[in-house]
Amino acid sequence: MPGTTPSPARETETAWGVFLVFLRLGLSSFGGPVAHLGYFRQEFVQRRRWLGEAAYAELVALCQFLPGPASSQVGMALGLSRAGVPGAVAAWAGFTLPSALLMTLLALGVGAGIPAGVLQGLQLVAVAVVIQALWSMARSLCRGPLRIAIAVLAALLVLRWPGLQVQLLVMLLAALLGRGLIKPLFVAGLEVPSKPSSRRLGAMALGLALGLLVLLPVLAALWPNRLLSLFDGFYRVGALVFGGGHVVLPLLQAQVVEPGWLGNSLFLAGYASAQALPGPLFSVAAFLGAAIDGWSAALVCLVAIFLPGLLLVIGVLPFWQALRHRQGLQAALAGVNAAVVGLLAAALYQPLWRQSVTGPVELLLVLLALVLCSIRIPPWFLVLLGAAAGAWLL
């Protein structure tokens, strides 16, 4: 029936196979968290058919509720579903490694500047990818006037009152509206084994995530050490930020600028550079760590900021599989899925569209990229075309 998960292609079952798939995405996924969700949808829903449209939207909604980098957590969950915990780690490593290495080299003075036109071209490709993902998700998840109304309301509220708290309230309101007004049809979701052993592992992962959050500040106070203090600070940032992306900026600034580890100008230079590179924005942790104390600190900060999100994905998904079959939860998720479409629409308009499409040439390039997206041009080739067009025309 409509929305049912397609029969998955089982060619990628090993952690190494998952790593290679996500490494290619890590090399070509420009545009920030919202664009990443579009690239993931192209790769895993349309091309590889690992899961269906509704299951993917459900996964996106779940990761929006969890602390941590939402787009990276979607990737971790996909890796977990294909190759267990090693697959989750492999998905994170493949998607994060290119940008983390580039950020570390940039902080150490090796990286070279990227022409402004190339960066603009890459941003325009990201706009096209998000538009295509938004349109396809809206067709699947906003059927009927009620779900359309929820999506529009979510977009308007977030645009009028931007901020993390409003986003969380919008998701909660959508869940309540869905629970009370929507009668969903059950659809098959992401297949993650939910055996007693996996639930035990999930409980252990949740316990470890909470235990580290409580114990790390104590350990850092008892045994003063720069690397331990960095691990503590970046772990807390990863554990307390919801939605990822630009929300992480003030928390990271408090961790590295206020204690005097970095100057504000260097911090902002690293943050701006991260937005110009493929892969997760949280890779800025590698830049900050390297600028503070070289390669070792870069690795410590990078692992610390992503670890809470990884532990939460491993911990929540085994229990989620049992909970998601309940009709009340399905109804709430239907409302949340519609709200996710609205949040993506708001993020498309501000900041992606307003910052990227500033004239007729930019608009023409976005339309051209949309046409190429519609004929299933590989993302990496689209990225190369966008970079070349930006360098030539902008």
Rank of each mutant, 00 (worst) to 15 (best):
R48V: 09
V89F: 14
L78S: 02
L78T: 07
A57M: 13
T96R: 00
Q46H: 14
V60T: 09
R41W: 06
A54D: 14
L66G: 10
A61V: 03
A61T: 09
P86E: 06
A83P: 03
L105V: 00
P86T: 04
A116Y: 07
V89L: 15
A90Y: 12
L105G: 13
E53P: 04
L66S: 10
T104W: 00
E53G: 08
C63I: 03
Y56S: 05
E58F: 07
Q46C: 04
G68Y: 02
V127D: 05
Q46F: 07
L106K: 13
Q42V: 01
E43Q: 15
A88G: 13
Q120K: 15
P67W: 05
A128S: 15
P67A: 07
V60M: 10
V85A: 11
I114R: 12
V60E: 10
S72L: 10
S72Q: 13
F40V: 09
W92I: 01
V45M: 09
R48L: 14
Q132R: 15
Q42P: 00
P86F: 07
L66I: 13
V45E: 07
V130H: 00
G52V: 07
A61K: 06
R41T: 06
L119G: 09
I131D: 08
A90M: 13
L119R: 07
L97G: 10
L80E: 01
V89M: 11
E53H: 11
P86D: 03
W50E: 10
I114H: 02
Q46W: 05
I131R: 04
C63L: 11
A70V: 11
M103N: 11
S71V: 07
A83Y: 02
G113Y: 01
R47L: 02
Q123G: 09
V130L: 04
L51T: 11
A55H: 10
R47A: 12
L78V: 12
A90L: 14
G52E: 06
R41P: 03
L80C: 02
S72E: 11
A54T: 15
P98E: 01
L102N: 00
V45N: 09
L105N: 00
M103L: 15
V89D: 03
Q46R: 15
G79V: 06
R47W: 04
Q120S: 14
